[in-house]
Lab assay of single mutants.
Amino acid sequence: NQASVVANQLIPINTALTLVMMRSEVVTPVGIPAEDIPRLVSMQVNRAVPLGTTLMPDMVRGYA
């Protein structure tokens, strides 16, 4: 089972991601792999991401 990136807090739209906003968790469906967390830092979300939501590739500008 692969860990995915999950929002550690509410992340408002257009917010640049920081390490404290994300955690890794084994979830279904699988989202962005946890090993990509360092790559996600400073990328912006293109929608509001509620606490506990799995980050999907289409939620992060420039990721996919």
Rank of each mutant, 00 (worst) to 15 (best):
V20A: 13
D58W: 11
A3E: 15
V20E: 07
N14K: 09
V5N: 00
P50N: 13
P29C: 15
E35A: 11
S24W: 12
N1E: 15
P33S: 08
T15V: 09
T18G: 04
S42G: 15
A34M: 12
I32R: 01
V60M: 04
A3M: 13
A48S: 15
I11D: 01
A7G: 03
L40A: 01
Q9R: 13
N46A: 13
S4C: 05
S24Y: 09
P50D: 13
I32M: 03
R61N: 07
A3Y: 14
P12C: 05
V60F: 04
P38G: 12
M43L: 08
G62M: 08
G62V: 04
R47V: 11
P50K: 12
V27E: 02
Q44V: 11
V45K: 01
P57Q: 06
E25S: 07
G62D: 10
Q44D: 04
P57C: 13
L19A: 06
M43E: 04
Y63N: 04
V27R: 07
N8W: 07
Q2N: 12
A64E: 10
V27F: 02
V20C: 15
D36L: 09
N14F: 07
I13D: 13
A34C: 15
I37M: 14
A7C: 05
A64F: 03
R23M: 05
L17Q: 01
R47L: 08
Q9W: 14
S24V: 12
D36E: 13
N14M: 09
A34K: 05
V60C: 03
M56P: 01
I13V: 12
V6E: 01
T28F: 07
S42H: 09
N1G: 14
V27W: 02
L17N: 00
M56W: 04
P12M: 15
E25I: 05
D36K: 07
T54C: 05
R47Q: 11
I37F: 03
L19I: 12
I11R: 01
Q44G: 04
P33N: 11
A7F: 02
Y63C: 03
S4T: 04
L40K: 00
V45E: 00
P29T: 05
A64Y: 03
L55P: 01
Y63W: 14
M22W: 02
S24M: 10
P12Q: 12
S4D: 01
L19G: 05
R61T: 14
V41I: 13
Y63R: 03
V5G: 02
M59K: 02
S42P: 02
E25N: 06
E35K: 07
A7M: 05
T53N: 09
V27Y: 02
N46I: 15
D58V: 09
L19V: 04
P38S: 12
I11P: 01
I37T: 09
N46V: 14
N14E: 15
A48D: 13
V60A: 01
N46W: 07
G62W: 06
T53C: 06
V49P: 02
M21S: 04
L40C: 05
S4A: 03
N1A: 15
P50T: 14
G31C: 04
M22Y: 02
A64S: 12
A34Q: 10
A16G: 06
N46H: 07
V5T: 07
L19C: 06
V60L: 09
A16V: 13
Q44C: 15
L51R: 06
R23A: 07
E35F: 09
P57V: 07
